[in-house]
């Protein structure tokens, strides 16, 4: 399973590096979302500072939908399915590989957007001990849920409209917990920030396990 996962992760990341869809479409979308949020809130520094963690995660959340759709579009092509079958890849490994590739893409996006909120929203990282897990754990949770619900949403024609409806309500707890944890990392006094990190950990673990168990049967259908 792990060998297949590494193979699929490397393949997905190679495709992304060559096609540069993430670089030219998903990354600019995330940055654009940050700008639009700032336009909507106005130039008040205190307001932008307070809203920065939530707006950061909203931008990541919306971009993750695009990333999940992109990831599943690769998998949905008949040639890819045929290649997976011929190679005898374990569906659980395929799921894990797609999640790993998407986590890497989301982490790159998060780093760029973090620089964005530091420059645009006048915040700074006060505690990497909170900020680092607050960036990594949601990326795992969002990727696992995105790939799992993307495989539920059927073919590419319906997925683009259906996936946000299916996955955004499920990811609402991640948005809340990630915003709370990141605000602690940015220096705000957030009570129970540690417990929010635990919630992120549980979400990521639950959806990774569910994805490993369910991705195969769903792809078969």
């Amino acid at each position: 399973m792990w060998r297949d996962a590494l193979l699929i992760a490397r393949r997905d990341l190679t495709i992304e590096l060559r096609s540069k869809v993430g670089l030219w479409q998903i990354l600019p979308f995330g940055l654009l979302a940050l700008f639009l949020f700032a336009f909507a809130l106005g130039p008040r520094t205190d307001l932008l500072e307070a809203a920065a963690p939530g707006l950061f995660w909203l931008a990541v959340l919306f971009s993750s939908i695009l990333a999940a759709q992109r990831s599943l579009n690769i998998e949905g092509s008949p040639a890819t399915r045929e290649a997976n079958r011929l190679l005898g890849l374990d569906p659980a490994g395929v799921f894990l590989g797609k999640v790993v590739a998407m986590v890497v893409e989301l982490l790159v996006l998060e780093v760029v957007l973090l620089v964005g909120i530091v420059l645009l929203f006048h915040v700074s990282v006060a505690s990497w001990a909170f900020a680092a897990p607050a960036l990594v754990l949601p990326a795992i949770g969002l990727s696992a849920a995105g790939v799992l619900y993307g495989s539920l949403a059927g073919g590419a024609s319906t997925r683009s409209t259906l996936l946000p409806i299916l996955v955004l309500p499920v990811e609402a707890p991640v948005l809340i917990a990630a915003s709370k944890s990141l605000s602690r990392g940015l220096g705000a006094t957030t009570p129970d920030a540690g417990r929010w990190l635990v919630l992120l950990c549980v979400f990521a673990a639950v959806y990774t396990v569910l994805g490993i168990a369910l991705y195969g049967p769903l792809e078969e259908s």
């Binding site: 539920l152 949403a153 059927g154 319906t158 259906l162 409806i165 299916l166």
Partner: peptide, 10 residues
């Protein structure tokens, strides 16, 4: 509501 939307996928 998402469940009902999912059921409408041909």
């Amino acid at each position: 509501l998402g469940y009902l939307a999912l059921r409408r996928v041909p």
